[in-house]
Write a protein that binds this DNA or RNA. Structure first.
Lengths: 226, 226
DNA sequence: CCTATTCTACCGACCGGTCATTAAGCCGCT
DNA sequence: AGCGGCTTAATGACCGGTCGGTAGAATAGG
């Protein structure tokens, strides 16, 4: 049992993060199953064996990526939306923040949404619970808005919530940053479309300053994190 | 060049169709890569080898499933929407038909949307072209509607089209037929939500009689079809 | 300051297993 | 007898994961 503990070097951390991000990118492109550990090793200039110095296993890697983006979701989107009092404003903030997250972290978000079957059975419930918490919050926010209107025909909050989710998740499948439309514009348009589907007279999209995703705060930390 | 053509027997055809549909179901549940030929053989009561009497290969199977649902899309959704003259009505018909298709054929639709990476490079362009044609038609239908309004801020037709697509595709991920909401209801609500996002004063959802998907007309035909 | 030891970061070979695909042959029906 | 419909068995590719080993940097001892 060594008494000396080496302080964590900056480089270790940077290397690990680099691996997580590159892995997320390639997994998002090719799919989890179709991406081999060799593929991942190659793009971070390691051999497969070397990769296992940083990564516990393929399943753990997937779980780590999902946790990374779930942290962002809770800290930078949900928490901020919770601060709002007015239901309309709250929903608008929530939606804008969520769209921004999808734009800022398309790879991880894509994986979170589309690769749940690849999760280890031991991890799955934890991820599902956190996803459910978000869906619940979104649905409640929608209900609060719908209650102040008398729409005919009645809109089922569950249908509404999932429709909005689908709309936002779809962004990851087609939006490329180099296209003609700016990220801020996209956030605005998608948010407005969703709100108009729900609210008769929606507020304008909130100021983007509060919705910018803060990557640094939620990255995976330490070796074999997650 | 044979002069005699064996007429297609009912049984061959029925068995093949059964295989396609069961395969679509299980692939949609577990994902294409995670579904082995053994899995598919098992649920249709064959051995892996026996399956190859009906199927040319795994890639061809995927391609066949996609073609099956693309045929439905073109024959039962696009064609009918094209008949409408009024832009608002046309868009409403198109959306309702598309939602209905997603509800009627969730497995194949899920595969069409989410398993494109698994396609053989030789097949991919053909599938992409047909998907693009649908997206184009949807976008044009949206443009025709938007042109009659003066919305501020301007809605990008591309953003609008893809948002609507995402919304509808999302249905497949959460809607279970045994839930409290009826399929007709769901078609109505999703269509209305999408239209409200686009149109100030949308028409009501069209009569469902014209939008019921006709499976028999677009199934894969013959041995090793596709 | 020099040497011995330990630790970090990584390599390359390899293993057990799974998978898609194919070949050869068997069985029952006509 | 012959063929359609199927089974059994084998093959080769690939994959996730393990392991022994090692160059070199860091640390400790004298």
């Amino acid at each position: 049992m060594p008494t000396y503990q080496k302080p964590p070097t900056v480089n270790d951390d940077a290397r690990a993060i680099h691996i997580y991000r590159e892995a997320a990118r390639i997994i998002s492109e090719k799919g989890f199953d179709a991406t081999s550990m060799g593929d991942i090793a190659e793009i971070v200039d390691l051999t497969k064996g070397g990769l296992y110095y940083y990564i516990k296993g393929k399943k753990a890697l997937l779980y780590a990526i999902m946790n990374f983006v779930l942290n962002l979701l809770e800290e930078d989107v949900i928490a901020i939306a919770r601060e709002g009092d007015d239901p309309d404003e709250r929903l608008a903030t929530l939606l804008a923040g969520y769209v921004r997250l999808v734009i800022d972290e398309p790879s991880s978000m894509n994986i979170l949404v589309n690769e749940e079957e690849g999760l280890d059975a031991a991890y799955r419930p934890k991820v599902m619970e956190r996803k459910r918490a978000f869906t619940d919050f979104l649905r409640e926010s929608i209900v609060a808005v719908l209650e102040r209107q008398d729409r005919i025909p009645k809109l089922d909050p569950n249908v509404a919530a999932h429709s909005v989710l689908g709309m936002v998740h779809g962004v990851v499948l087609w939006y490329k940053n180099d296209s003609t439309i700016e990220p801020d514009d996209l956030v605005n348009q998608v948010t407005q479309m969703a709100l108009r589907g729900l609210i008769v007279d929606p507020p304008s999209t909130p100021d983007p300053k509060v919705t910018r995703t803060d990557v640094e705060r939620s990255r995976p930390r330490g070796r074999h994190a997650a």
